[in-house]
Design a protein around this nucleic acid. Sequence first.
RNA 1: GGGCCAUUAGCUCAAUCAGGCAGAGCAGCUGACUCUUAAUCAGAAGGUUACAGGUUCGAUUCCUGUAUGGCCCA
Length: 494
Amino acid sequence: MSEHETSQETNINELKKVRLEKLEELREMGINPFGSRYIRDTDTAAILQNYTALEGQKVSLAGRIMSKRRHGKAGFANLQDLTGNIQLYFKKDDIGEEKYELFKKMDIGDILGIKGFVFRTQKGEITVHVEDMQYLAKSLHPLPEKWHGLKDVELRYRQRYVDLIVNPEVRDVFIKRSRFIKALRNYLDDRGFLEVETPMMQPIAGGAAARPFITHHNALDMDLYLRIAPELYLKRLIVGGLEKVYEINRNFRNEGLSTRHNPEFTMLELYQAYGDWQDMMELAEDMISSVILKVNGSMQTEFEGKIIDFTPPWQRITMLEAINIHTGLDFTVLQTAQEAQAAAARLGLKVDAKSTRGEIINEVFEEYVEAHLVQPTFITGHPLEISPLAKKNAEHPEYTDRFELFIMQREIANAFSELNDPLDQQERFMKQVEKRAQGDSEAHMMDEDYINALEYGMPPAGGMGIGIDRLIMLITNSPSIRDVILFPTLRSRE
RNA sequence: GGGCCAUUAGCUCAAUCAGGCAGAGCAGCUGACUCUUAAUCAGAAGGUUACAGGUUCGAUUCCUGUAUGGCCCA
């Protein structure tokens, strides 16, 4: 193993050696290969956009050399910065012998500051005629191929910095991600929501059904969980009178990885006092569609060859109706767990013998309905047993005032009227604790302090969680969640 | 956790099916070229075929295990 590595290192060193020698040559010429602050007065996109005004004008810009074409005593290169890419022209007669030597030594990947004037070549390409150049950083590694870029997904994730240099569409995804999240914040801020930060490290991991990561605080000699959701803390703030709060940040769930799951992922959660699940539905529809319109310039996006139309209103359908449509099963007449069990068996679905009617409804839904939900669809009326933090429906207390939003077969949002009856909440927790005792490691833990908070009185409230990464996948046509997370979780090498 | 697939030069890929000297393009190196743009032309170089074993006269190729990644399933 180590033998293999040393041989690989020697190979890399042969390429790196040449660059280290060039670096030494620069130093001998009195040039610092790793320069400092450089003042730019423009960028590549601005030059291309304002050519008529800038023609013949002097400009100062900086960036990374991405290609080089030498022709004896003149040559071209391309310089890339955040905004794009522009051609540079070096002519020995104009730039002088010494600077022209620098151009000859310059490697693809080097970062330079450039001063020169803007012109158009005979072939019509807007170009900067270089009059002065300054080394800002010497690159010691060769960049991946200019034409095919970096394709090896493992390398792209492990060395995202290289991916970002050579694959411009990757950079665009993360710029769009940032704009999307900023637009969400603006939307909520404009409507009087207060952005807050609640604990990432929690003594009790609550607010969702998931296995948590465990860590340890030395000074307190106490185990802590990385949060699986901020929900119970945000609702404590509703008790405290903050009325409209939201948080956009990471949750951590100790589960397998897939194209839709990363152990740390970004959620938006928001709570609105004196509102309910219907308000959340209106908010979800308006917020998501208007933010997508703002960021994408259209209510339609293409994902894996299908057009998703975010134009409101979105379809609203109860979970039982959806099941009836896609399986023919009518759970309104299947009133007992035994009947539900038998019906599921007829579909060919194996369910745990201990499952309740509500749990079976959920399993049938996940198995036979989710795959049909492509366009934005609100699924409403979830069974009580799978909704331990939601208010019961006033008329049908075996269901809750809740919805989930599905798009492209994925759960994107989850919202409900928040349960504010501390006695009811205590009972629900007790049921979860029983399930936990029976080995369900995803069941909720008892949170006495949360009950205590509810006992002070929490106003009725609507609350919602939105999976940001999955939404970003949809608007950037990214098939894997790893394509929208800068540094996705990977097994460490060695 | 299970199944399937992949791993060859710094990068992108051939050769693997059916065992017989491991090849190309880009990048790098040497040289020519003062408006090129996947620049061009000439030349030389670059490999423990992921790792460890096995079968064989001979293994990148077949077999076993390991590592990492991908897809599907849980």
